[in-house]
Write a protein that binds this DNA or RNA. Structure first.
Lengths: 148, 148
DNA sequence: GTATATTCGGACTTTCATATCTGAATATCT
DNA sequence: AGATATTCAGATATGAAAGTCCGAATATAC
């Protein structure tokens, strides 16, 4: 089974989209997010810290604490998050790992993979976080039950 | 850095394309392929065995032995090889791992990822092994030096 | 027939992403 | 102030993919 993004990156995407679907001013518990998205809670904790350190989300410690989407993050795409977890040039590798693959000395899939890569970048870049959460209203309605 | 296919699958692709570029009746040593493509030799051994067991390549033991592309493999695409190493339905997973993602309850990237997936399948399926090796004549000319 | 070169197959080791554990720090509530 | 609930951070554990090692089997050459 092929996975495009690492688990860390997938979970980061999911968490941000989940937080974007919450009412403003009502932070979500790590445990709540973990339950809703079936992410191992402690692993999610690390990812949330990374996202917070880079300004994508904010947190509130102690009782009634939790995590919220940063105000500025509502208007961005997830491309920066992808670069954060997968590296800044995360689609640069030759698709079949041919030694020394380049535009000049391409592998047999070079051109077609280039087109597919552009499509993937567009996919990530086209929608803002706000819009992404709207696209999954039905799904969020379903997993909202996990708010404890 | 994102990798679409596993190392095993990448190496299998490379080995088959390499063998397709060799003159018929002149088997290639495991060591030669390993040198030419910078693949760890013993790891390559396992992959060649898998390919042989599934009929993609043939082998000759003992002195003057080596590996050759099966006659029938010259006219196939690499889709079967991808399925062999990545699983029969290797592009079925949700691109961001959302729980219960489906056509009915899609994740926000569902549609766009579907298009990208089709492109990837086409990329693998469109060219026959023969044609793939022709597409990299310049590269093969370069790595031909490794024939020992 | 002996020496040599190779494939073949199984066991083992390494590495890294993923996941878990534990306790400290910090905020809120009564 | 004390009890409680949460984030935060570092250490540790797990599992699967990647890579290595060794010896058996087999073919060729002389």
């Amino acid at each position: 089974m092929i996975t495009l993004f690492s688990k860390s990156c997938e979970y980061a995407f999911q968490a941000i989209i989940y937080l974007a679907g919450r009412p403003i001013g009502k932070p979500a518990l790590q445990r709540e997010i973990s339950n809703a998205l079936s992410i191992p809670p402690h692993f999610l904790g690390k990812i949330l810290q990374t996202l917070r350190q880079h300004g994508y989300i904010t947190s509130q410690k102690g009782k009634n604490g939790g995590f919220s989407l940063s105000k500025s993050s509502r208007d961005i795409s997830l491309l920066g998050v992808a670069q954060l977890f997968e590296g800044p040039d995360f689609l640069a590798k030759c698709v079949i790992g041919f030694p020394g693959c380049s535009d000049d000395v391409p592998c047999p899939f070079h051109k077609e993979w280039k087109v597919a890569k552009e499509l993937i970048i567009e996919m990530i870049q086209y929608n803002r976080v706000n819009e992404l959460s709207e696209l999954i209203d039905s799904k969020l309605a379903y997993i909202k039950d996990f708010e404890i």
